[in-house]
Design a protein around this nucleic acid. Sequence first.
RNA 1: GGGUCGGUAGCGAAGUGGUCAAACGCAGCAGACUGUAAAUCUGCCGUCUCAGGACUUCGAAGGUUCAAAUCCUUCCCGGCCCA
Length: 333
Amino acid sequence: MPVGTSGAMKGITHEELLSLGAEILLCNTYHLHLRPGEGVVEEAGGLHDFIGWEKPILTDSGGFQVFSLNQLRKISDDGVTFRSHLDGNELFLGPQESITIQHKLGADIIMCFDECPPSTAKRADIEKAVERTLRWAKECKKVHEKLCEKKTGNASPLLFGIIQGGLERDLRTQCAEELVNIGFDGYAVGGLAVGESEADMYCVLDDVCPLLPKDAPRYLMGVGRIEQMRTAIAKGIDMFDCVLPMREARHGTLTLSDDSKIRILNAEYVHDHTPIDASSPSLPSRLYKKSYLNHLLRSNERLGETIACMQNLGVTLEKVRKIREAIGSDEKI
RNA sequence: GGGUCGGUAGCGAAGUGGUCAAACGCAGCAGACUGUAAAUCUGCCGUCUCAGGACUUCGAAGGUUCAAAUCCUUCCCGGCCCA
C-alpha cells in the first residue's frame, strides 16, 4: 500500500500511481482529522469521492502518531491527547474518536486505535501498551459494530486489530491470541521496523503468524524494504505499507529493477547519460537519463521528485506483485 | 583630484587585539531515512595528515605588540558622494 497520508502521494498523481499498479491507498486519520477535517470529507461524499480515488482505501487510526509525535502527546487509559503539529491546538483521540472519524472518512479498511511504543521501551511500558491496545481494540470493535448497524447495504468497512508487544515474545503472543478472541476482519502487526534488528522483527512474525486465522489478512505495518517484505510474506504476511520508497526517492536514493540502489544525486551521475532504469515498470525511468534526473533533483524541480517517486514505487509494487504471483510455485523471486 | 565606506575560505556574510583555520547561510562532497511533524536530518567542507596534530591564511607590503583578520603606515582594487 502506497502511503498517501493526507489523501495524496507526495509528488505523483493518482493516475501515475495507478499506472504503477497500485491497488489500494493508505490515508491517515490523525492528519485528515486535522485538515481538512472529516466533516469536509463526509460532505464531499467520503474519501473516495473527495480525493477522486476509486480503488480501496485503508485509513490508519492515528496509533502511529502516538509513537511519532512523542513530544506532542500525552497518553492516558482513555486515549491520547495530542498537540496538533500544525497549530498547537489540543485534540483528543481515543478508540471511540478514531473509529468514528474513520467511519466518517469512509475507507474500506479501518484500523483499531493502538498504542505503539518504541521497541526499545521497558517491559513494563510495553505491558501497559498491550493492555491499552487490547482494551481499546474491544472498544473499537464495539463502536465499529454500532456504526455498522446504522449503515445500509454492504458499505461497512473492515476493521483490523493491531498486535503490539514490542520484542516481548509472550506479550506478542498474548496480544495476538486475545485479538483473535475478540475477532477482527484482519490482523496487523504493529510496532515493528521502528529501530529493532531485522532478526528481532522476524522473531515476532514467527511467534505471531501461526496464531492468526488462515482466512484473515495479515498486515505488517510500516514495512518496508523489498527484502523484508519477501521474508515476511514467506512467514505469512499479506499486506504492507511503507513511506520508505517515496521518502528515499525524494531524498535521492533510487531502487532499480535489478534490486540495486543508487544515490542519483551523487556526482558520478552528472555525466551519466544512460536511462535511469531501462527495464523499470515506470515509464519516465525508461525514457529519461540519469544525468537529467540528477539535474532535476539538484535544481529542486518537482518533476525530479515525480520521476524518482514513480521509480521506487513502481519497482516496489512490481516486486511484491511478482512475489505474490510466485506463491505456491517453485519460482524463485 | 577630494571625501567616504569597504576588500574575510568557491560565493554571500559575521568577527574589529589573545578562547580564530575563523560563526552562520548557500553551493559542493558523502551518508541516513520503514503504520510521513520528513522538499527532512547527520557528517565533511584552507592544505597535509601516522587523524594526535602539523603547516599556510582574512587585498598587498611594512610596522606596533609577548600576541594582529582585528591597531598604525603606505600602496593596490571596488562602491557611493563632491569637484
